[in-house]
Simulated assay, not measured.
Amino acid sequence: MEQQLEDLYRFPNIINTLQVIGCHFGLKPPGWHYPRHHHHLFELLYCVEGEVAHEINRDRVTMQAGDWLLIKSGVRHQSSNTTQADYGFFNVHFDLDDPEIRSLLSQAPYRLIRHKEAEQSKLRFYVGELEGVMQRNHTDAEPSSLRFEDKLLLQSYTLLIIHVVLQLFREHGSSRGQGTAAEKDPSLFTADIAHMIEEKLALGLCEEATVAGIAKEMNLSRSQCSKLFSKVYGLSPRQYVSQQKLKLAKELLVTTHLPMTDIAEKLGFHSASHFSRQFRRWTGQSPSEFKPRHHSTN
Rank of each mutant, 00 (worst) to 15 (best):
V232E: 00
S106H: 08
R280C: 13
T62E: 05
R238H: 06
L69T: 12
Q64D: 05
H172N: 14
H163P: 04
M63H: 02
G284W: 04
E117M: 13
A209D: 01
R58D: 11
E265N: 01
M196A: 11
H93I: 07
L205Q: 03
P12E: 11
Q224A: 13
A264M: 07
Y126T: 02
P287I: 00
R124Q: 12
A108G: 14
C47Q: 09
I21M: 07
Q84Y: 10
G204P: 01
S174A: 15
Y157T: 00
M63C: 12
H93W: 12
I197K: 01
A191M: 08
Y126D: 02
R238N: 07
E199H: 06
C47H: 04
Y240W: 10
I193L: 05
E208C: 05
R36C: 11
L44R: 01
S187Q: 06
E51V: 14
T210E: 07
G234T: 10
H270G: 08
E207V: 14
R281Y: 00
L146I: 01
V92N: 02
Y46C: 06
F275S: 00
C225D: 01
K116S: 14
S144G: 05
A85R: 15
Y240D: 04
Q285C: 11
F125K: 15
C206Y: 00
Y9N: 10
F125L: 15
H295Q: 13
S223M: 09
T158I: 07
W32G: 01
L154S: 01
P259M: 09
P30D: 03
T82G: 12
Q84G: 14
G177L: 11
H295T: 15
I21A: 05
I14A: 05
L220Y: 04
N13S: 08
L159I: 09
A141W: 10
S145P: 01
Q244E: 08
L5S: 14
P35A: 07
F11G: 12
H39G: 05
